[in-house]
């Protein structure tokens, strides 16, 4: 019963129904190749959402992910332009480290200066975009300036799916293990579930939030390289406003904005739900403006769901009712 009622099952069913409805009007949508394309296209959203999930679980929010992505991606592109021979593995490592460093700045400000996360990340979001402008004077880096290896890696097909898709699978596996089987994952849930109780059990709340921001930054940095390479272009406003899609994916996926509740699988499904809508609507000839309205409606429905399930069921007074739940 609890399995059937869980957020993950409902969301997976919704995605299946959505895909089935689209298939009735456009059978080509359910061709395996197209589904793989949709999955790959949604990969950046999934990776960023998993980072955002960790942050939201600790009762914070990271609005700087898209700006972090843009800055890190731009730096990777500039390095590639300056040193075309540098192996892609090194560029990937740089993107992860730099993203982590940018995330750590958010984390330190939240941890040591006790500034509310929404203010910190609103500030760093603007600063990161500003830094890109300072680095480039607003100029674009285009496909012809990047090396073939740089732009090629995310698109290389491996067992029928581009590397970009496989990276999201890999990140998902790592995140499932981190959240379920490590002391850090447990601390993240504890800090969001009840910060006061977490303090008394010896968990450093600020440090846990710092690590959450670092993880989020790390994944944003990695996505930065993948995004720039995939679209073969880097500019100041790239992925502008994408942080809102990322937060939306988490909320639809059942991550409680109040912290402490939610799963990796839910987050992935939330991102995929948005990804399917985004890819399907143009296919069935619905205006992209409807797409925004539908995404918005999905968020509100998801939050209404959360509020419903979070409603207290009254006190259990009769002894006989205690186990009947």
């Amino acid at each position: 019963m609890t399995f059937l009622k869980s957020r993950e099952t409902i969301l997976a069913a919704a995605i299946v129904v959505l895909i089935a409805l689209i298939a009735t009007r456009f059978p080509g949508f359910i061709a395996p190749a197209n589904l793989v394309m949709v999955f790959t296209d949604t990969s950046p959203l999934m990776i960023l959402a998993m980072g955002q999930m960790v942050v939201i679980l600790t009762r914070c929010i990271d609005l700087s992910v898209a700006a972090n992505l843009a800055l890190t991606g731009m730096v990777c592109a500039m390095i590639n332009v300056a040193m075309p021979g540098l192996p892609i593995a090194v560029i990937v490592a740089i993107s992860i480290l730099m993203g982590a460093a940018l995330g750590a700045i958010n984390g330190v400000l939240v941890w040591k200066l006790n500034i509310p996360p929404i203010v910190v990340t609103l500030g760093t979001m603007t600063i990161f975009r500003g830094v890109i402008f300072l680095l480039t004077d607003g100029k674009w880096i285009n496909a012809h300036e990047m090396s073939a290896a740089f732009t090629g890696v995310p698109r290389t097909s491996l067992l029928g799916m581009p590397v970009l898709g496989w990276v999201s699978v890999l990140v998902a596996v790592v995140m499932v293990i981190v959240m379920a089987r490590t002391t850090l994952g447990r601390a993240i849930y504890a800090v969001g579930g009840n910060p006061h109780a977490a303090v008394y059990t010896g968990i450093d709340v600020g440090k846990t939030q710092f690590l959450a921001f670092t993880i989020s930054g790390m994944l944003a940095g990695l996505t930065g390289y993948l995004w720039i390479a995939r679209y073969s272009v880097a500019y100041v406003d790239i992925a502008g406003g994408f942080e809102l899609d990322v937060v939306a994916a988490c909320v639809i996926g059942g991550i409680s904005i109040a912290g402490g509740a939610g799963t990796v699988i839910g987050t992935l499904l939330g991102a995929l739900f948005l990804g399917v809508i985004k890819n399907a609507l143009p296919v069935v000839d619905i205006s992209p403006f409807w797409q925004l309205a539908i995404s918005g409606a999905a968020i509100i429905i998801a939050v209404a769901f959360n509020a419903q399930s979070g409603r207290t069921k009254g006190r259990i007074i009769l002894k006989s009712a205690e186990h009947a739940q």
Partner: peptide, 17 residues
């Protein structure tokens, strides 16, 4: 306020510290 973490299973609460 300072005791249990309500959204967490019993066993995870018990072993937290």
């Amino acid at each position: 306020k300072q005791g249990a973490i309500l959204d967490m299973p019993i066993f995870q609460n018990v072993t937290l510290p």
